Amino acid sequence: MPQSVDAPFWQKKRLDEMNEAEWESLCDGCGRCCLHKLRDEDTGSLEFTNVACRMLDLASCRCRDYPNRRREVPDCVALTPGSLAEIDWLPPSCAYRLIAEGRDLPDWHPLVTGDRRSTHRAGASIAGRAVSERDAGPLEHHVVEWPSRWPRRRTR
């Protein structure tokens, strides 16, 4: 379907056509990608936990030192247009995943609302639902399903 010249950049460009600022602005700040996952070595099955990376601020759902995060967490995954095809654990509401699939952003996404807090208000973030890896103990005790599901809107 042809897009209007006035359409927002994410509706006009492929991920690999975006500049760095556009790419980074796609992150809605949900923090779901920063939750630890468990993968069964034999079956490859994936389980999600509510345990967040130690670099994630649990209130803002943002990395405490995004530019230098890989120095502290060497296995932190850097999303790129090329790496998306190999990543099977992004939440269904992730803008990178949605755009790669040819879909639009949800109505609560900050690029749509103009408000960085809209993700939290919509109940799409990990705020109030995650624990830091520093406090969690065994990951197996923290297996949850909600990070792999489309967020349900909070009712007022």
Rank of each mutant, 00 (worst) to 15 (best):
R14V: 10
E140F: 12
P2T: 07
E72Y: 14
G31K: 09
W146A: 09
G123L: 02
G114M: 01
V112R: 07
L84P: 05
R70I: 12
N68S: 14
L90T: 08
C30K: 06
D57N: 15
V112E: 03
A95V: 07
M1A: 11
S83W: 06
R62L: 15
C33N: 07
R97W: 03
H120N: 15
L105F: 11
L79Y: 04
A127W: 08
S83P: 11
A124S: 00
S83G: 00
S132N: 02
L111N: 06
G137M: 12
H36A: 04
S83Q: 10
P74D: 04
S148D: 12
R117E: 15
R69H: 02
E20S: 14
S125Q: 02
L58M: 02
D107C: 08
E72W: 09
Q3E: 15
D28N: 14
P110H: 01
T113M: 00
S148I: 13
G44Q: 01
L35H: 06
C53N: 05
E101G: 06
R39K: 14
R149C: 12
W146P: 13
R129N: 07
P2M: 10
P8A: 01
C61Q: 09
C63N: 11
C53M: 08
P147Q: 04
L111C: 07
R129Y: 11
C76L: 08
G137P: 06
T119Y: 05
W150H: 09
L56Y: 01
G31S: 06
R70M: 13
E47F: 10
R129L: 15
K13Y: 13
R14L: 14
N50W: 03
V112C: 03
E145S: 15
E145N: 13
G128K: 11
R70F: 07
V51S: 06
D57C: 14
P106W: 06
F48L: 08
V131E: 02
P92R: 03
R71I: 15
P106D: 01
M18C: 14
S25Y: 11
